[in-house]
Design a protein around this nucleic acid. Structure first.
Lengths: 360, 360
DNA sequence: TTGAAAGCGCTAACAT
DNA sequence: ATGTTAGCGCTTTCAA
């Protein structure tokens, strides 16, 4: 019967390997940890015995004795139900982190958390106490909550932030320059002749919303285009809010010729609003998104957008974190690592329409 | 300076709590583990001291001494790059698992793995050896690979499968009856007058593809509709393959009036093919999907589909797994738990067109 | 380059 | 209801 509570052969320990290989347990330990000063023949013998017996050292015992954990933590928002545009971001980062930490012998403990309720900082702290990972990668929005960062700092936790605000805290940060990316997209639209460019931002509580908005403003300023505040609206990052704001903008007396939404999810919502109003995209309206999520190529027309290399975020963050853990003296704590973004041009953006015909 | 390698106050141990509370360390241990036979006053005192000192027991030491892990593992396919339709499934299950295992004091170690290369069974086995979780939740396709299940069994691992094939192995399984769900959707289409119903299945190597196909066949049989094999095609679960198969089907001399794709991703691809051919959905063609993923409501028209309660899969699987771990004698190993599916009716499916006009 | 002894922080087994 | 002792499987420290 499957999974019956049978005793099984007693689990192998380092002692079994030691006696089988004819060395002391300490020597086996040295081989396991790749230490220097082991005779190459001894090492080979030990490795051979371990392989033959399918031995694998007990990670908990190792952690206890060495006073170090072989676990890395990752903190991010719950994304299954709401907030789903963020899902590919989280998963991408997660796989990036794993690609590196596996190679370094760490496993990943995940901690999605609810940001609606309660005291997030102590919730995260409690997680760290329960799991005791060697370090933790923080994704937005936790990576941008000062009270979280300060608490972790006070408790001597090692962490790396993945954030749009690299210089938001004196701890290592990884991310793209979002302000610059937003500016690049806006310049792209201006280059196609657009002048009435609307901007659908996110909730102001997220600092990245602000970064995106200022990139938009800077680009307009650079080309001497006056900022029309009625063209700057706020969504909630969601599809529905994008649709709502799209309808709002397209119902204006003098509607924009281009709408730049600061997430693909919202851009898809804008697209839906245009469809519902019979407005041709990109003939009468250009729509741009942000993030290059899967949805960007699932809608019609596919979205021009900004790609953030989320997998790289994860890999680079894991790299920085493991450096911090394994070489706490050599590492500059506050060093940030910027990863380049990419403007992806697809069919949802085109030249400004010749005449002011934008609605049916 | 943030995250400097400072010594910090020596970490608290159970001994500190014991002396502070004026009891032995064993009593503290009893309180931590919620054991019976502790005087209520003593218990209260210990709890008070632990709270006051912000004490949290070292999980690694606990695991070592008690010879049990407080980690649960989760094995699933890598979904960031390819295969992205599966992402919400994985994330949903993950959050379901977490909702239950946190409540029970377990943390979750994740293991996305590549199924393209190598020996999956030993790859998973190596993960279990490195992390030594108390048990593991297997998602498809690992949950349907007999060699994986057999190896885990031989090694005395505790696991629960989330799978479409509940009776595919004598170990606990959680999932929906997919054959029945496919049948229900086909019957739904038949009820709307459709007779030429195409079916876009998945890769035959996945057993769930077969279950879905047979549900389709059964429904047709029940209504005395002959099976036209040219209407049964294979995709790769992906958007692109759905689009390709959609074009193929719609280019037929006598094209189907309804296309039932066995994933939303593929259904979205079919929709795209219809758009490209100027075929009105649902006026001239009905399109149904499977899974009720976010994309189902991001396309136009939104997809009629089958919802699988993935969060519940996760929660129920964690429940079953922890039962297996904590009460290995009382649990029936082979007990499966079916979770009900739901047919979600949206605008992509309508009555069969009056005349045979299906293309522009 | 190797080994012996001590102990990481906790729980099991057996007292009392 | 509580305490004592021994040890979980490994690494550290120090000696050889």
């Amino acid at each position: 019967m499957s999974q019956a509570p049978r005793p099984g052969p007693r689990k192998l320990t380092i002692n079994d390997i030691a006696s089988e290989a004819g060395v002391s347990k300490k020597t086996v330990s040295r081989v396991i940890n790749g230490e220097k000063y082991v005779n190459e023949e001894t090492r080979a013998k030990v490795i051979e015995v371990m392989a033959a017996l399918h031995f694998s050292p007990n990670p908990q015992a190792r952690s206890l004795a060495a006073r170090r954990s072989f676990l890395l933590g990752m903190v991010y928002p719950r994304v299954a139900a709401s907030f789903s545009d963020f899902m590919p971001y989280v998963v991408g980062v997660q796989e990036g982190v794993l690609s590196y930490c596996r190679a370094k012998g760490y496993e990943l403990v995940v901690h999605p958390c609810d940001y609606e309720h309660a005291d997030v900082a102590s919730e995260i702290d409690a997680f760290l106490k329960r799991a005791e990972p060697a370090g933790v990668v923080l994704l937005p929005p936790a990576s941008e909550f000062t009270d979280v960062l300060d608490l972790l700092d006070r408790n001597g936790r090692k962490f790396v932030r993945i954030s749009q605000q690299l210089d938001g805290h004196p701890s290592p940060g990884v991310g793209c320059d979002v302000r610059k990316a937003t500016e690049a997209m806006t310049v792209h639209l201006i280059g196609l002749g657009h002048r009435r460019i609307a901007f659908v931002g996110g909730q102001t509580s997220f600092s990245q919303s602000e970064a995106r908005r200022s990139g938009y403003r800077d680009a307009l300023a650079r080309y001497g285009i006056p900022v029309d505040d009625t063209l700057i609206v706020k969504g909630l990052w969601s599809f529905d809010s994008g649709k709502e704001q799209g309808h709002h903008l397209l119902a204006m007396n003098e509607p924009p010729t281009a709408i730049f939404a600061s997430s693909d999810e919202m851009a898809a919502g804008v697209l839906m609003a245009a469809h519902e109003r019979g407005i041709d995209v990109p003939g009468a309206l250009s729509v741009a998104g942000f993030n290059d999520m899967p949805i960007a190529t699932r809608v019609w027309p596919p979205l021009t957008t900004i790609r953030q290399p989320v997998y790289d975020f994860g890999r680079v963050a894991a790299e920085a974190l493991i450096e911090l853990i394994e070489d706490p003296v050599g590492t500059q704590p506050g060093v940030n690592r910027a990863v380049p973004f990419e403007l992806i041009s697809r069919a949802s953006v085109g030249p400004v329409p010749r005449v002011g015909v934008t609605s049916a």
